[in-house]
């Protein structure tokens, strides 16, 4: 008995170390090595070349477009996320499950299809195209959606649409709505209830959702690729990376890794921020 117990503990330990080693190796090869590889490739031609390739007009323009699209879509989706989570967790109504499934659509469809969807709506063949033409001719405006900045922004909003509500809904569900009901019965108005009662519960989840949304918006490629054709005007950073990489010369490939390294740094910041937020949220509970 004693001997077999010892054997059991020994084999348990062996299993433990094998599993940990395989896990660490898997993460190291699959996830960490690509990060290291980006940095090494970006510095191939030296540090001067690195900074030179980050300061071309194309890259600064792409950075501007990316930041703008990210800010707008994070703003829009934060607003939507809060409103939708309030609706989905504070009320019972028919079709609630369907609504919540519809909100999650962008998670499971190819980003390229998102791009296609906007082309089929606002592009030449789209049904909304005459409407835009009419607006342009009546008001003398020059609104363009597809292959212009609004298209890039719409595509970015589309792919990040469920991110905030995804994080906030579970938290609101687990908190329950007794506190809000009490506040409402005592006469507090809607926005005051949200600010004083609900917001303190969801602030970490909201922040976490915003971080994920930002990361995804910065990096969106497929949907934007379908809707953006002008380098230096409507290109985002991932599109600029693609253009540099596909042009094929050794220099431009190194430059594309240099631009990529910016996004790698942002990705690492996102991961660290996410960890801090999660840690804080646990502490608060």
């Amino acid at each position: 008995m004693d001997y077999s117990d010892k054997k059991q503990i020994f084999s348990r330990k062996i299993t433990k170390y094998i599993l940990i080693t395989v896990s660490v190796l898997f993460i190291a090869i699959m996830l960490v090595l690509p990060l290291v590889s980006v940095i090494i490739n970006s510095l191939k031609e030296g540090i001067a070349f690195y900074f030179k390739s980050l300061s071309t007009n194309y890259v600064t323009s792409a950075l501007g477009v990316t930041v703008m699209a990210t800010l707008i879509s994070v703003g829009v989706n934060t607003f939507f996320g809060i409103v939708a989570s309030w609706l989905l967790t504070r009320f019972e109504f028919r079709g609630k499950n369907t609504l919540s499934t519809l909100i999650d659509i962008p998670f499971s469809i190819s980003p390229v299809i998102a791009g296609l969807a906007f082309i089929m709506t606002f592009g030449r063949l789209g049904w909304a195209s005459p409407v835009i033409d009419w607006i342009n001719s009546t008001f003398g405006t020059d609104i363009q959606i597809v292959f212009a900045l609004p298209g890039v922004v719409l595509a970015t909003i589309f792919v990040t649409f469920p991110f905030i509500s995804r994080e906030v809904v579970p938290v609101l569900n687990s908190v329950g709505h007794d506190e809000e009901e009490a506040a409402a019965l005592m006469g507090a108005k809607g926005f005051k209830i949200f600010r004083k009662v609900t917001f303190p519960h969801i602030k970490w989840a909201l922040l976490y959702g915003i971080i994920l949304c930002t990361a995804r918006a910065l990096g969106e490629f497929g949907a934007v690729n379908a809707l953006s054709k002008t380098r230096g005007q409507t290109f985002t950073l991932p599109l600029e990376i693609d253009a540099l990489y596909m042009s094929g010369s050794a220099d431009s490939i190194t430059a594309s890794f240099a631009v990529s390294s910016l996004l790698v740094i942002i990705a690492i910041i996102v991961l660290v921020a996410r960890n801090i937020v999660e840690h804080r949220a646990k502490k608060d509970n």
Binding site: L31, G219, P238, Y245, S260, V264, A267, V270
Partner: peptide, 14 residues
């Protein structure tokens, strides 16, 4: 979560 945070194009070229 790295694959969520890293843009797909960056992952692709690397």
């Amino acid at each position: 979560e790295l694959p969520f945070a890293l843009p797909t194009a960056v992952a692709g070229i690397t």
